[in-house]
Amino acid sequence: MNYHFITIEGNIGAGKTTLAHLLSKHYNARLVLEAFADNPFLPKFYENPSQFAFPLELFFMAERYKQLKELVHTKDLFQSVTISDYLFTKCLLFAKVNLPEEEFRLYQRIFDIIIPQLVQPDILIYLHAPVQKLQSNIRRRNRSYEQSIPDDYLFRIQETYTHYIRQHNIKTLFVDASNADFLGNEKHVQVILDALEKDYENGQHFLALP
C-alpha cells in the first residue's frame, strides 16, 4: 500500500469516523479525528445558524489547522501511515454553505493563507450516501443537536463536496455508500482495502459495495 496519508470525507453521517477507525487498525496507522465535540458553537449553530456560523467555522478551522500542522513536524517511527476523517478544505466547503457572501470572502482569505502550510493527502476516500441514509445514521448515533438537521442542508453540503471534487480533479475513491455497513459487513471494508492496493491517476474512481 503506497499511500502514506489517506483522508476520508463525506457528508454528516456518512460513516467517515467509523471507516477511519477500521482502516487505522488494519494499517496500524496514526489516526487524526475531527474534534467536533470540542466546538462550543456547534449546538448554538444548529439553534441559530445566522448568528453562530462565523465563530463556528473559525473555531473548526483553527482546530483542524492545529491538528494537521502537527503532521508536518512529527513523524512516528512505528506508524508510516496516517488516516484522517476530514480534509482541511472541508473548512471552505462548509463555510460556503453556512456564511453570507462578505463573511465567506473574509474566511476564504484566512483559509488561503493557511492551507499552503499543510500536508495534503495522497488519496481521498469520499463516502457518498443519499440524504435518507444520512438521516438514518444521524438518528442512530443520537447527538441531540443534530436531530433537526433539514434534508435541504444535507443536500447542499453534498452538492458542494461533489462539485469541489470534480472541479479540482483530486485523486479520489468515490464510494457509493448507500448500503454501507462498515462495522457489520467485513466485505464493505475489504472493498476499500483492495482499492487502496492499486495506483490511480488523478480524478474520481468509483467503487460499489456488495
Rank of each mutant, 00 (worst) to 15 (best):
His26Ala: 12
Leu58Arg: 07
Ile83Glu: 04
Glu102Thr: 07
Tyr153Asn: 13
Lys25Pro: 03
Ser50Pro: 03
Leu19Arg: 01
Lys69Thr: 00
Lys96Tyr: 07
Lys25Cys: 08
Tyr161Gly: 10
Val189Thr: 15
Pro210Arg: 08
Glu201Cys: 11
Leu193Cys: 11
Gln108Tyr: 04
Val119Pro: 01
Val72Asp: 03
Tyr153Thr: 14
Val191Pro: 08
Gly10Tyr: 04
His188Asn: 08
Glu70Thr: 12
His188Leu: 13
Phe59Ala: 08
Val131Asp: 06
Pro55Met: 12
Val97Asn: 14
Val81Cys: 10
Val189Leu: 15
Lys133Pro: 00
Leu22Trp: 00
Ile6His: 01
Glu197Gly: 05
Ile170Cys: 01
Gln147Glu: 12
Asp38Gln: 12
Met61Arg: 03
Asp152Ala: 13
Leu134Gly: 01
Asn39Ala: 08
Gln79Arg: 11
Leu22Asp: 04
Asp112Gly: 02
Phe36Asn: 10
Ile8Trp: 00
Lys90Ala: 00
Thr17Arg: 02
Thr89Phe: 13
Pro100Gln: 11
Lys69Ser: 14
Gln51Tyr: 10
Glu101Met: 09
Asp122Ala: 05
Ala195Phe: 04
Thr89Pro: 02
Ser148Lys: 06
Thr160Arg: 09
Leu93Gln: 05
Leu127Trp: 04
Leu58Gln: 13
Glu63Pro: 00
Arg109Thr: 13
Phe41Thr: 06
Ile12Arg: 07
Cys91Trp: 00
Leu56Thr: 14
Arg30Phe: 06
Glu9Pro: 00
Ala20Met: 02
Leu196Trp: 07
Tyr107Glu: 09
Gln51Asp: 08
Asn179Tyr: 06
Glu70Met: 12
Ile123Thr: 06
His73Ile: 07
Gln135Ser: 07
Glu102Gly: 05
Asn11Ile: 05
Glu186Lys: 04
Leu93Ile: 11
His21Thr: 08
Glu63Met: 11
Thr172His: 09
Asn98Gly: 04
Asp112Trp: 04
Ile8Asn: 02
Asp38Met: 04
Pro130Phe: 13
Thr18His: 05
Asn179Val: 13
Phe60Glu: 02
Tyr86Ile: 00
Leu33Cys: 13
Ile157Gly: 10
Phe78Ser: 15
Asp112Glu: 15
Ile170Leu: 14
Leu71Tyr: 02
Asp122Ser: 08
Asp85Trp: 01
Ala129Thr: 09
Asp181Gln: 15
Ser84Asp: 09
